[in-house]
Nucleic acid binder design. Structure first.
Lengths: 209, 209
DNA sequence: TTCTATTCGGAACGCGTGTTCTGCTAGGAA
DNA sequence: TTCCTAGCAGAACACGCGTTCCGAATAGAA
C-alpha cells in the first residue's frame, strides 16, 4: 500500500467512492475537482503512475474507462433469479418456464449460480425441509434439470407419497437412496420410477431477521 | 412490452447486453453500430421515445449515461465481505478488525448484508453447527456487535465450556437461553457472564458442490 | 554549486459524443 | 388531391474529455 503519494492515495479513494455512488467511473476533470488538483495533466500524470504500479487499468479508446484492480471498486456480476414459487412437503414443485416472467426476483452472485443457465429460485415454506438444513423462509437456488449425478443435491417429487423433498441422490443397486444433508437423519429408499427430479440445488440462502 | 417498434426493441436488447458485457453503457454511436442503424439522429430519436415511454433514463450532462429502468440492465449493489477465518465448535471465533485486510473475500448482495457496516464472514468447519442449520463449508455472514436483542441469531463464545455456537438469544429471567434454529433440538441455558457475543448472524449461504 | 529526476501548472490540440438542423419518404385522414 | 405526423438520412455544431507540449518549481546526488 506504500509507495503512493498522498495525491495518488486520494485519487484511489475518490475513484472507489465515485464508482460506488454513480455506477460509472469519473472523468479526469471529475477527479481534478474531487481531489482539488490544479490541472488535468497532473491527474493524467498520476493516473499513469497508478496504472504502471498496477492499481488501475484504463481503456484509452473509451472515455471514463478506469477500472480498479484491487476489487473494491469492481462490482461482481450478479444475476437476477426469478422466484417461481414455494417448495413445501405436500405440494408439487413449481415448474420453471425459461421464457416466462415472474414477479419476485432474488439477486445472486455468479458464484451462487455458477454461471449456469435455467436457474430459478424457490422459497421454502414450513419446516419440512429441515433435514436438508433449510428452514421456513429460506431461498433455494436451483438449476432446472431432469437428471443428476450421484451425490448431487436435488429437488425431487415422490409420486406415490406425493411428497416434495431436498436430498442428495445415490443409486444403490436398482434402488434410489435419498440422503439428507444432515447426516444424523435417515435416508429414504425408493424405486427410480417413483422419483421425478425437478432440479439441482446450487445454493441455499438463509436470511435471519 | 408492446407499443415498441422493432428498432426500439433492438436498442433495448442491445443496451442490456452491452451493459452486461462491459460494465458501462454504450455511446450513441456504439448503439448505431450494434443495431445497424444508419444515423446517430435515428438513435437519438428512438432513445428519446424510449425515455418518454419510461424504459430508460438519461443524464444529459454525462456521456454514456443511459440507465435501464426495468432492472435487467441494472447491477444490484454488492459488497465484498472478508472471510476472517473459520468457525468451529472447539476454537474461538476470529475477531474482525475493520481496518485490517483479509485474503479471501465473498461477494454479497446488499440484501444479504442489509446495508450494515462492520460486516464479515466466517467459514463453517465441521458439523458442530448443524443445529443452526449450517453445515461444513457453509459461509456465515456476520455483523460485528457486542450486544443483541432477544430472538436474534448470534455467534457466541461460551467461556466455561470453551465452545463456539450459533444460536438465537433469549433472556429467561436472570439466565440466558440459547435456542437452536432447528426447533427439534434442545436449547442451552447459561449465565450472562459466561456468554461473549461475537456478532450477529445476518445470512448463511450453502454452496452444494 | 551543477545536473538530473520528479512533480506540477497552464494551455492547447484533437477526437469522441450528444445534440440539432434541414430535408426526405411513407402513410393515413380530411 | 392536401395536410399532418412518424420515422429516417446526412451533415454540422458545440462541448466533454483524454492527451500532449512546454516550462517551472523542488529536491536530492555528484
Amino acid at each position: 500500500m506504500k509507495g503512493l503519494s498522498a495525491k495518488q492515495q486520494a485519487i484511489l479513494d475518490f475513484l472507489r467512492q465515485f464508482i460506488r455512488n454513480k455506477d460509472y467511473p469519473p472523468s479526469i476533470r471529475d477527479i481534478q475537482l474531487g481531489c482539488e488538483i490544479s490541472s488535468t495533466s497532473v491527474v493524467d500524470y498520476n493516473l499513469k503512475a497508478l496504472e504502471r504500479l498496477g492499481y488501475i487499468r484504463r481503456d484509452r479508446e473509451v472515455s471514463r474507462a478506469i477500472e480498479m484492480l484491487d476489487g473494491t471498486g469492481r462490482r461482481p456480476h450478479t444475476v437476477p433469479v426469478p422466484i417461481v414459487g414455494t417448495i413445501a412437503a405436500g405440494s408439487p414443485i413449481p415448474v420453471f418456464e425459461p421464457g416466462a416472467s415472474y414477479g419476485e426476483m432474488v439477486d445472486a452472485t455468479e458464484e451462487m449460480t455458477r454461471g449456469k443457465e435455467n436457474v430459478y429460485a424457490l422459497r421454502v415454506k414450513g419446516t419440512s425441509m429441515i433435514d436438508a438444513l433449510v428452514n421456513d423462509g429460506d431461498i433455494v437456488i436451483m438449476e432446472r434439470t431432469n437428471s443428476a449425478d450421484d451425490g448431487e443435491m436435488i429437488a425431487a417429487w415422490l409420486k406415490d407419497e406425493e411428497e416434495t423433498t431436498l436430498k442428495r441422490l445415490y443409486t444403490d443397486g436398482d434402488r434410489i437412496r435419498l440422503q439428507p444433508a444432515n447426516e444424523t437423519m435417515k435416508p429414504i429408499y425408493t424405486r427410480p420410477e417413483n422419483l421425478e427430479i425437478m432440479g439441482r440445488v446450487l445454493t441455499t440462502i438463509s436470511h435471519h431477521h
